[in-house]
Design a binder for these strands. Structure first.
Lengths: 201, 201, 201, 201
DNA sequence: ATTTAAACGAGACGGTACGTCACGTCTTCTG
DNA sequence: CAGAAGACGTGACGTACCGTCTCGTTTAAAT
């Protein structure tokens, strides 16, 4: 018996909720982040400002929820966030890293993730929620692939998988965030190579 | 003849400039970043707002300059930004990485660098200036140490030093930015170990 | 055949109607008028907001109806709004004017009538309804007493009774509205005296 | 030594102050009062909203100040608010009352005074200020004329002049506020006649 | 006793205006 | 004559109510 309270307004709620998140994503993806105002979101979503503030306590939270919902939707689509496992760790990782590099290079995704990182960097609560809802599930999927590699002797059985993931991904993330270099396929490959040299069998 | 325009107002200029940057650093270090307003900086520095805007085009730029000046002052103190070179790369790197980890853990430095990263992440021009004025000199110093190691056979002579630095530092940076784990001495050591395994001779 | 559509829900209607008007009166009488919101009325009446808007087109109309109903109820009680007629016009008028002055001095009545006047002053339609439903019946009663006085020679037979009433009541009303002086019994008497000097036989 | 503080920004202040009050008067005179918003005033005055709120605590206060300033300007123009004194009280009063009736009939003045009365009726502080700044000076001028009449035996020497003024003006005011009758020249005359009958020698 | 449909309480919604805050500009007077 | 003091235009913020619009839920009459 989940619903023991008043009338069910869930349909309207759900519709406006989706409209708000979609509008937020659209705006973040296409505009400079400072131009993403709550008023603009409300206007684009065809929604009153109060409807936004009824659900989220601040603009940060809306932006965060918007990006979050995007990823959750994607996950829901394919159901799993599993990485490819062809048995060849190097090939699999290069595939994934090249895809990741490409993704970060797309302008709209860039703006989205940059906004997300801005919010997260200055709000520990959002950071925690981000890790719980987005980062950890993804990391678990990645670790599962690494464990599978450990089992077949393609990765040091004693390696700290959190560390392995950091060595693999953090350079890409930092280069993207600071725009300190190009995110090429070759770069992606180099990271996989270095990681496997560091944590190979 | 360095000053060719009239009386010597350079002293006042310099004094107010320092006061502004010091006030900015103090505020950023002690308050939530959203509370750092130009008005607060001006008040704290005992300066008119216009004196701030005469020198920098925006609040971002002031904050950026404040952090920048901090580092430049430090550099000026010791004159060089050279890393220690005892001949033992592993020991030297661990020393540096442990110090870096400690530095990031200090609350006031944390807030300062977080503010800097927020500004940088959303402003490509600031990011470029940051890399030119702060990151690159530091990286050059680090690369100098790595080259020295290559010469004595403690590091792969063909290694891409930019990549080496990323593998070494980016995990620490990411863990700090996302608060995704503790920045312990052991963690610092692990990064050095992994890097040396990846790029050792 | 008065009811040609469906069941008779008039009892509920009547109950909620009374609750709304009573709640409105209570709120107007006890709070600053700006704090009288439709939501507050609905909450106090234990009624949905829509139930209010089903019956009245605006908040103004509700407030107006609430005050109106109060007076109509009072009238219904005593059935007639006739003024006393002892044969002595001066005594009768002083009695009435003193009572009126007292009434206006009561805080809750004050707030009620002030709210009514606020609505009326800026809405010609409400003003018309007010005159038709409240003011005119009262004026007719007063004029009846004046006519009776004319017949016995206590008042100029040619006097314009509207004007007489204005000279008698308007000063009291204005003094109350503008809080420009005390509403004492002596003041009430003075108005009667002045009016009788102006329009006496 | 009135100004012992910082720099004098009075010129800008005065300019924006005048613009705000003028815009307010224009809007009140031409629109329904509910459409007179602070934002509209600011826009019309070419002024920021904050500049309005820096000076006045609420919309009511601005509207009040706007009407107040209008009257004070007028007074300042002619310097005195004295009523005509030809020696013939009846003629003088009829002149003034007819002018007053005409004034109230003008739509823009009507809206202005209606707005003023709305604010005053529900705010005792504004009402007090109104009486002090506007009503009392005017009343003094009127009483001066009445006193002059008392001296030449055209008015009862013992008459309470406040009461005389109320009997003279309040009926006109009430009729206007409640729209309960036409404000004709004949009506103005009738009020003078009645007043003189009540308080004549 | 069961059905049925109007009226209902609850309260989310789109909207408008509020009053506040900080930005970056502009103006005035002072050291 | 550069600088502190600070008012200004701008525009987003988050809040409060308005009057509208669903939602299930009484409730009283008709079955």
């Amino acid at each position: 018996m989940p619903d023991e309270k008043g009338p069910d307004h869930s349909r309207r709620k759900e519709r406006s909720r989706r409209a708000i998140l979609a509008a937020t994503r659209a705006l973040v993806a296409e505009e400079a982040y400072e131009k993403v105002t709550v008023e603009a979101i409300a206007a684009r979503a065809g929604v009153g400002k109060q409807t936004i503030y009824r659900r989220w306590p601040s603009k940060s939270a809306v932006v965060f929820a918007a990006v979050l919902a995007l990823s959750m939707d994607e996950d829901a689509d394919g159901q799993s966030v599993a990485l490819p496992d062809t048995g060849d760790l190097e090939a699999d990782l290069k595939l994934v890293m090249r895809a990741t590099a490409e993704e970060f290079a797309a302008p709209s995704f860039d703006r989205l993730i940059r906004a997300l990182n801005t919010e997260i960097a200055n709000d520990a609560a959002l950071a925690a929620e981000y890790r719980e809802k987005l980062a950890q599930p993804l990391e678990e999927a990645k670790k599962a692939r690494l464990r599978s590699a450990q089992e077949v002797g393609q990765l040091d059985a004693d390696a700290d998988l959190d560390l392995v993931l950091e060595v693999l991904y953090a350079p890409l993330f930092q280069r993207w965030l600071h725009r300190s270099g190009p995110l090429t396929a070759g770069y992606a490959d180099s990271l996989v190579d270095a990681t496997l040299r560091a944590f190979g069998p």
